[in-house]
Amino acid sequence: MMSVRERPRVLFLSNVAWDYLRQRHQAMAARFGRDFEVWFVEIPGIRRLRLSDLPRIWRRLLVLCGVADGGDGGVREPVPDGVRVVRPLVLPSTNALFDWCNRVLVARWVRRHRDGLADGVEAIVTYTASSAALALVDRVPHRRLVYECTDNFAAVRGVPRSYIEREARLLKRADLTVVPSLPLAERHRGAARRIEVLPHGTEVERFLPEGPGRERPADRPVTLIYYGHMHRQHFDFPLVEGIARRRPAWRITLVGPVVTGWRWPSNVDLPGPQAHARLREFIFRSDVIILPYAINEYTRCVLPAKTFECLATGLPIVATPLPEIRRVLKAHVRIADDVSGFVAEVEAAVRDYRSPEQRSDRIAEARRQTWESRYRQMCAWLREMDDAR
């Protein structure tokens, strides 16, 4: 029997760190933190380790030792009231030995925090089926288990088979599985006890332009922007390089960590990860936002987390034909699938630069897709399950 607390506790088991990016994990945890006491538990990734991962591993060790914070390159989103970020010492869920070690490490961690966990928690919301996460699910009593499945992990390069097997068990065990896209729901519908589609949202005020749209400066080169991780799993490097070479007078700004190295032409800028205030500066010095996603088995289940953020800027967007973008946002996003198509759509977008009607339509759609509405929907599902008991 769980003791009564003034604010019930919820564990968020996250496969991403609380760093410079405000992703689904942080956005939902921040909102739960207004009504619950949230522990945001950072769990290492699931890819097989490579030499290129050594800097990231070293940075995590420094964080665990208290020498550095959890940000990427020193950049980190503030942690709101009601949320506590915790980083247990556990290993990546990449092999049987690490999985065994994680069961031992998690058992010790739970014992050290027994004052906060022994009586159980209101809910566990997990974004990962790693061995460490499932060990926590086993060790911490909870009323509800929610699996926020954000990706088609079976299509992610380097994910071990053992992870997919654990995910299948988690789908059967979770009271509720939540996915951001219809294709991902269809993929897991037969395995999950209950599955619901909850697309990514946006914090509109963080991305709205300041004041009415202005005329584009005639002497400014056409400037495109993409922000987020750049990894061959989802980012179409040849496409962006082709656009840069086809239009050498244009500027292309790629904001965020480059996970996969690439040799870029001189008109491509790589400013690295940026805090939100700086990201806004880059966005509003640009003419068009691009979403150059590769089309493959992984991305066919993807609705980019930044989709509605991009709409909130009011800027025109050109994207590759991801199925979910075509289904959900075709009226607000220009679609192109090769270099020539991208160039043509960007040029058309610049001609219609900040058209008042199109700009207003994009922002209005973003206002309908807030994280507030997503949180209310999640709470409604949880209450519905309680009422059905």
Rank of each mutant, 00 (worst) to 15 (best):
P238Y: 05
A380P: 10
V67N: 11
P78D: 14
I43W: 09
L329G: 04
R368G: 11
L64Y: 11
R247W: 10
A305M: 14
I57W: 07
R60L: 13
D72A: 06
A174C: 03
A118Y: 01
G82E: 08
L184V: 10
I124W: 07
A249P: 00
V85H: 06
T126P: 05
A349T: 08
L145Y: 09
R157P: 12
G70L: 11
I195Y: 10
V178Q: 00
L117R: 01
D69L: 01
A191M: 11
D361R: 15
M1I: 08
E297I: 01
A30E: 15
P321I: 08
V10Y: 06
Q274L: 15
P265D: 06
R362A: 03
H231D: 15
R359Y: 09
A132L: 06
E210S: 13
V38Y: 03
G211Y: 01
A68G: 02
A168S: 10
E148R: 05
G228Q: 01
L89V: 10
D99C: 06
D386G: 07
A275R: 14
R216H: 10
P160F: 01
E324Y: 01
P217W: 00
H188A: 01
N267I: 12
I363N: 03
V146H: 04
L136V: 05
L54Y: 13
S266K: 13
R285D: 15
V75K: 13
V38P: 00
I289D: 05
E6F: 14
V79H: 00
A174L: 01
P217F: 02
V104T: 10
G116F: 07
V140M: 08
S355M: 02
A366M: 06
F98Y: 11
E309Y: 04
T370A: 09
D337E: 15
W371V: 11
D175W: 10
A348K: 13
